[in-house]
Structures are given as C-alpha cells and as structure tokens.
Design a protein around this nucleic acid. Sequence first.
DNA 1: ATGGTAGTTTGACTA
Length: 253
Amino acid sequence: MRIATWNVNSVKARRERLLAFLARHRPDVVCLQELKTEEPGFPREEVLAAGYHAAVLGQKTYNGVAVLTREEPAAVSTGFGDGGDETQARFVAVDVAGLRVASAYVPNGQTVGSEKWAYKLEWLARLRGWAERQAGAPLVLCGDFNVAPEDRDAANPAAWEGTVLCHEQVRAAFGRLLDLGLADAVRLHHPEGGLFTWWDYRQLAFPKNDGLRIDHVLLSEALVPRCAAARVDRDERKGKLPSDHAPVLVELS
DNA sequence: ATGGTAGTTTGACTA
C-alpha cells in the first residue's frame, strides 16, 4: 500500500502535474494541501478518470485539503470537531483500507509573535487533541506541518533558527504529537537527515538544495512494523511550473 | 543591497 502527501500550491495550477504524479506512482492514497480553490474548482472528473475518489475540503484563494483514494472511503470527516474555529480549510480525514488517513495543512505562522503565530500554536495543539482522540485507530497523519522537527531537517539550520518553521515552540508542539506514539516515517528510514521537502521559489533555493523538511507522514505505533519504505520525490520539484513542495511517499506492507 | 518567486487576482496578501 502506497501513501503520498503533497502540498501542490494550487491544484488548478498543478492539475497536469497532479495527474502525471498519479500515473507515475499509482499511489493508493494521496493527501493534498494548499488546493487554493473551492470544491467546484477541484479537477474531480480528471481525478476520477485516473481512478480516484476525492474527499475535498476547499477554500477560495487559500488553504484547501483533500484525500484521494483508489478505494471508496468508508467515512469522511472535515475539521477537528472540537468546537474550535473551522473557517480555514486545513483538515480532512478518511477511513480507507482499514486505515484512518488525515491530510493536514498546518498554518505557516508568518512571523513569531504575530496573530498568525498564535493561531499556528493553537492549531497544532488542536491537531494533537484530534490525534489523541483517535487512540486505537491505525492512523496515518499526513501533511504540510510547517515544522522542521530538528536541525538535521534544514540545509542551513543557523539561517532558520528561531523562525516560524524551526522555532522551539513549534518543534515542541511537533514533539507532543510524537509523544502520542506517532512515528515520523521518513525519520525511521533516513535518520541521517539532510532530506528536504520544501525549497523557497526565491534565491535559487532548489538548485542550491537549500531546503527544509516540513512535510511529514506520521504513523501510529502499530503501523511502524508495516512501514517498508519512506522517501521524498525530489524529481517532482524539478522542471516547468513545480510546486515549491516535493511529495513524500510511504510504503506499507 | 533587507531584495529575490509564485499563486490568486488585478492590489495586496500569503507563503
């Protein structure tokens, strides 16, 4: 079973890229973030023709998440259902193939100390609450976490020290997710670090490989023995009109 | 030098 997560940075701008990605990897499940469109703008017919059901939570201009599945999901839920703010389309989860799979788009946080920063910290705490309530489910929590968990997840950690993607408070919040028994799939298979999923469009960051690893697949404890491989599809960041994020792919036996 | 790219939208915001 192959599971992928990818921040596409506009599913309308990346429609052909997405269809080529599905054809190339034939994943069983794909979590998408930053659709940047309401549901009617999602290329549902093309994705269906490629063999996928689509659970979509859209929003105009910003955010937007989806889970594509080859099997029809047994259940779909959007948001955290915790009584908190649900105005931003950042979370959708499905039950499929005996798994609970979630696509999360964690707020960037803009600048430390801003209102958006406070919202990011609150959102990460709510995400932890949601994950805690899934205790016992075989959980695959995927997404753009906007957190590089450790210095080995940045090409130039000194340049990013104290910023919204590397700040100790978001690293601690990420750590509190792992404390629930969730495992970072790429870390399991590539403990040496130096593997990145996002490169800024500016400053020739990709050619210089000046990246960060901020997109993750977290697996509940029971799934860890089934995780045969985890990788970053760096090639997807190459060529014409790429997303600024590369997909992460995980193989479950 | 305090910039730079990209998407949405068409001015300004977000990342």
